[in-house]
Write a protein that binds this DNA or RNA. Structure first.
Lengths: 237, 237
DNA sequence: TGGTGTGAATACTTTCACAGCC
DNA sequence: GGCTGTGAAAGTATTCACACCA
C-alpha cells in the first residue's frame, strides 16, 4: 500500500466512498464496479479508480471490487478500524445538539469529554460524563490522550479554545464556529459552516422577482425529472 | 461587473471574505489590503485579488479595498442584499436544532416553512410558524415562492424530500442527510457532513498507541505556537 | 467479455511577478 | 511608495483511452 503523498482532496472523498459501500453492503451487494459506484456518488468512474489506486490495487479486472474487502481497506487507510475519543468544547444549543447527535458513535467517534464556560452547564451529566470547565481542557485532553476536538463555542472564544485543545495534544479539529482558526503545522481543521454554504448557493439564484414569476422561466417538472447527480459545480445560468 | 462563468470554487470562498470583512467593519476598520485579509483568512493575497477580479475592480492601488464598499459588492454578487425564505424539512433532533439556530436570520435567511413526518411534531408552533406535514411541501413551497430548502430527515427519506422540494420550485438545497442527492441540472446542493469531515481527518492521525506516548514524537508547545493558518491541506506526515 | 489501473492529455486552480495607477 | 489587477507560468486534478488481466 503506497501512501507517499495523497492529495487532501482525495482523502476527503474516501469517507463518501466508505459510506456508500456500507450502504451497499447493508443492501446485500457483494461486489461493485467503479462505474456503478460512480453513478451512486455522482462522480466519474475514472476518479474512483484513480483515488483508490493511491492506496493499493483493490479491484479485480472483469469483476469490480469486493464490497466487504474494500470497506475494510478504506477503514484501515482512514484509521477507522478503531474508536476515536473526542473532546467537545461548548455546551450551548449547538454543543448540546452535537452531544446528542446519534451518528458519531456508530461511525467511529465517541465524545468522552465535554467542556463549557457557563456555570449553569458545568457539572451537568451528559451520556454519563460530567461537563467540565474549559480551564480543564489541557489536563483532561492530555490524560485521555484525545486527538480530536470539536469546537462549538461562540466566534470570540473559538481561537482561544483551539489553542487550548492543541496545547493538550489535539491534532484534528472540527470547527463549528464561523471563523478561520490559526493552528500550527500538522494540525488538521475542517469547518462546518452552513451559513457560508447557503450564502454561496444564493449566487446561483436569481433575484426576488423570481418568487412571483411562476412557470415562465421555471423548468418544467418533466425537465426536472431528467435528474443528474448533485453537482458540486452547479449549472451555468 | 463581469460574470460570464465564475468557478464554483471561487463562489464558495466569497462568503468567507464577506464574513471576515463584516468582522473587520465591526472592529472599526475602514480599509484593508489583500495582504492583510489574506493573513486573516489563511490564504494568499493573490488568490483574493484574483477571486475579486472575477466580479469587478473593487480595489484602489496604493490603498487597498474600502471595507464597506467591498461588503456591499459581495452582497450584491451573492444576492445577499435581501432576505431569503427557506423551507426546513425534518423536525427531529437535528431539525429542531436547525430551527433554533440563531445565525440564519442575521445572515440573510429566514425559515418560513417547516415540514415533518411524525404526527407528534405536526401542528407544533415554532418561531410563529406551524409545522406542516411533508405532503404539503409542494403546495407551500410553491405558494411562498421558496427557492432554498434544508433537508434534515433520515437517510432513507432524503431523496424523496429533495424531489418534493425541487418539484415545488426549490433550486438550492442544504443537505444534512448523509447521502448524495440526485437532482436535475441547475439545482445546487451543498452537504453538511460532520461525520465525513471527522473521518477524513483521522487519515492524518496515527494509531491508538499515540495516546499513551507522551512528549516523544509530540510537538513541543513552543513549536505549536509557531501557528500557521488553518490548512485545508494538512501537513504531510 | 467486462472492468481495472494508469500513462498521457486535458482542464482547472493557484501563484508569480510586474506594469500601471493612486 | 504601496498595492491592485492580471498575463504568463507553475502546479493540481480530472478525464480519456487502452493495455492488460481474470
Amino acid at each position: 500500500m503506497r501512501n507517499g503523498s495523497v492529495p487532501d482532496i482525495v482523502v476527503r472523498r474516501l469517507p463518501l466512498y466508505l459510506r456508500t459501500l456500507r450502504q451497499l453492503q447493508r443492501e446485500g451487494h457483494r461486489t461493485i464496479s467503479s462505474e456503478e459506484l460512480a453513478q451512486l456518488l455522482g462522480v466519474t468512474a475514472a476518479q474512483i479508480r484513480r483515488d483508490l489506486s493511491f492506496f493499493g490495487r483493490f479491484g479485480k479486472q472483469g469483476y469490480g471490487y469486493a464490497v466487504a474487502a474494500l470497506i475494510h481497506e478504506l477503514e484501515v487507510v482512514l484509521h477507522l478500524d478503531r474508536l476515536w475519543n473526542v473532546a467537545l468544547v461548548g455546551y450551548g444549543k449547538l454543543g448540546q445538539a452535537i452531544a446528542h447527535y446519534g451518528e458519531f458513535e456508530p461511525n467511529g467517534f465517541r465524545i468522552t469529554a465535554i467542556f463549557a464556560k457557563s456555570p449553569e452547564h458545568i457539572g451537568q451529566i451528559v451520556n454519563g460524563i460530567v461537563v467540565l470547565p474549559e480551564t480543564e481542557i489541557d489536563r483532561v485532553v492530555r490524560e485521555q490522550g484525545i486527538r480530536i476536538g470539536i469546537i462549538a463555542v461562540p466566534l470570540n472564544a473559538a481561537q482561544e479554545v483551539a489553542d487550548k485543545l492543541v496545547a493538550g495534544g489535539v491534532r484534528a479539529i472540527l470547527n463549528y464556529a464561523p471563523t478561520v482558526l490559526h493552528v500550527p503545522p500538522g494540525i488538521t481543521v475542517r469547518e462546518i459552516d452552513p451559513i457560508s454554504a447557503l450564502q454561496s448557493m444564493t449566487f446561483y439564484l436569481h433575484d426576488r422577482h423570481d418568487a412571483s414569476r411562476n412557470g415562465q422561466d421555471e423548468q418544467s417538472f418533466a425537465d426536472i425529472m431528467k435528474r443528474s447527480p448533485a453537482g458540486k459545480r452547479p449549472a451555468a445560468h
